[in-house]
């Protein structure tokens, strides 16, 4: 197992290329961890491969975050993966246009993604295709808009009570 351990993102990328060919893109970071960009429509297949391949075994989704990129009119999702058996980590990023922000859900791959994806939907409005229960998790039902978007404008009242907007 030792020879598989501590694979760098670049090595993992080279390994993934055999199965996913042109779909993925390796982005070396000047600061912090380098990442692999995944197209939103193949996220689930990539995630399944990363989890199940004996050389990778990414069995933990450490964190899943949503991001708003106002300059590019895009939303993004960042995945931080970890393998408890191989002790390596990986960062994946997905970018989607804000007009049609659909990403494949990885809830079926890692259960952690369930609430994280609901949060990303609640606060940023990213739609996760295939999520079994995609509803708001923090804001109340019937809340208007997605508060963590940069252009968010708070509603003035909620159930007849002023929000202070």
């Amino acid at each position: 197992m030792k020879s598989d351990a501590l694979k760098s993102p670049e090595e993992i990328y080279e390994y993934l290329k055999a199965s996913f060919d042109e779909l993925l893109e390796y982005v070396p970071a000047e600061l912090g961890q380098s990442w692999i960009t995944v197209p939103p429509f193949s996220m689930k297949a990539v995630a399944k491969f990363l989890r199940d391949d004996p050389a990778l075994r990414f069995n933990t989704l450490m964190c899943q975050s949503g991001v708003h990129y106002p300059d590019e009119d895009e939303l993004g999702v960042t995945y931080h993966l970890h393998s408890t058996s191989h002790k390596h980590t990986l960062v994946l990023k997905v970018r989607v246009p804000i007009a049609d922000p659909r990403v494949q859900s990885v809830e079926a791959i890692w259960k952690t993604a369930d609430w994280h994806e609901r949060e990303a939907w609640d606060l940023l409005g990213i739609v996760f295709d295939g999520h079994p229960n995609l509803k708001r998790i923090l804001c109340p039902e019937g809340w208007e808009g997605h508060p963590l978007r940069k252009d968010y404008r708070q509603q003035e009242t909620y159930l007849g009570v002023t929000t202070g907007a």
């Binding site: 923090l138 804001c139 508060p147 968010y152 708070q154 009570v161 002023t162 929000t163 202070g164 907007a165």
Partner: peptide
């Protein structure tokens, strides 16, 4: 009064005496 969220906290009621 809403405390530290009195101005920018979109999710906080600005004083429980509103309800």
């Amino acid at each position: 009064s809403g405390g530290p969220y009195w101005e920018h906290g979109y999710h906080v009621l600005k004083g429980v005496d509103k309800v």
